[in-house]
Amino acid sequence: MLTTDILIEWLVKIGVVFFILMTAIAYVVLLERRLLGFIQMRLGPNRVGPFGLLQPLADGLKFLFKEDIVPLEADKALYVLAPMIALVPALMTISVIPFGDKIVILGREIALHITSVNVGLLVVFALTSLGVYGIALAGWSSNSKYSLMGGLRSSAQLISYELALSLSVVGVIIFSGSLDLVEVVKQQNSFWLGFIPKWNIFTQPIGFLIFLIAAIAETNRVPFDLPEAETELVAGFHTEYSSMKFAMFFIAEYANMVTASSMATLLFLGGWYGPFVDKFPLLGPIYFSLKILFFLFLYIWLRGTLPRFRYDQLMRFGWKFLIPVALANVVLVAGLALLIY
């Protein structure tokens, strides 16, 4: 039954997670700018605060105070709605992601996730698949050629890569036998030969790679950032956006990155497990954050090094390479599962 205790627990959890997430996003932006700077042999933002650590704050202020422009020919309602539609699902996904085992605080046993759904994996997919509407709507409501192109590309791209993404996860589901993310993680708890962790990345590396590629494509990041390709579409779907609305897209994109990274972690890298987690459960979130950080670093690294795909290359790669390989992987993993069990 819903009691006041539980309600308070929920609210606290939501508040904490939301705060951490927003902060993380802000600093991931900073991290990206600094890292890109290093990759490109320059410094990056380092003036605001020590090492530029207050830069995100400054950026936020800037967004807040900028003039909010709505194009004359735009579809007002949708134009306003689009960034929210983009942002809300992106933030919502975090609610089902577990970032640690149960811990005891103040005599209460608290599970380190906002809510537990027995089809958590599907919920994540469902919510991320909704994110496309924000982009598509933004492109359409701006009533601008570039935006429309961006929106169209985005929807086509997301539909295409979602297939590969889902298929790459099938292997993991076969192994764990559950759609519950906590179960998926727990299944990776033990060790082979006492020291190799039983992470899914070792049993299905192909699946992992496909997942990674598809996830990058799903988040519209380089080298799959066609929807906002600056050089050809000016800025794609958010050409006409400014101020907080633009910020919302921005936040949504980074929130999606975080989600994708955490999913990769949960599914393939054993989630919050690491040395001594059993004894000190609080270590779990830390391991989890580190692993996410690795993926975020990978994102930025890729952005700094890879050129962008052409649109037809993107489509061909998705349909003709990724999906068949993902299908083959499913067959392979199914065979493997038959052998093991």
Partner: peptide, 12 residues
Amino acid sequence: GAIMVLFVFVIM
């Protein structure tokens, strides 16, 4: 996630 995206896509 899929069918309506298709609709929206076609409308656009």
